[in-house]
């Protein structure tokens, strides 16, 4: 996107939520353990397409890229992921309830 036209730089910031910090930690730990490379994450992020940048937040895109690389690396299967995400939905309506801490 270097050189593309764009509006003013938005200056507002936010403190990271726990789930965002956890995504960051998983990214660092799994790459330091050799389960994927930073390049693999970047490739997955780029393959999401330009509109993913508008539709999803930074760490939403990063957990998607982490997951994509872990599935490709055979760490777990899509069936395991989907089953677990279903179970989690049933735990409660908020992150705190569903994450159990």
């Amino acid at each position: 996107m270097g050189g593309d036209a764009a509006g003013p730089v938005p200056m507002e910031g936010h403190d990271f939520a726990l789930w965002e910090k956890r995504v960051d930690a998983l990214m660092v730990l799994c790459s330091s353990k050799g389960h994927f490379t930073v390049d693999g994450l970047r490739r997955a992020l780029e393959d999401m397409g330009e509109d993913a940048f508008e539709k999803h937040s930074y760490y939403e895109r990063w957990i998607a890229a982490v997951n994509q690389n872990l599935v490709e690396g055979g760490v777990y299967t899509l069936e395991e992921l989907a089953t677990r995400m279903d179970e989690i939905a049933a735990r409660g309506a908020t992150y705190g309830e569903a994450a159990r801490g």
């Binding site: 998983l26 957990i63 982490v66 992921l81 995400m85 989690i88 939905a89 992150y95 569903a98 994450a99």
Partner: peptide
Amino acid sequence: WQRMEIAVR
């Protein structure tokens, strides 16, 4: 996406 983070973790 939060559900995905919890599941992956």
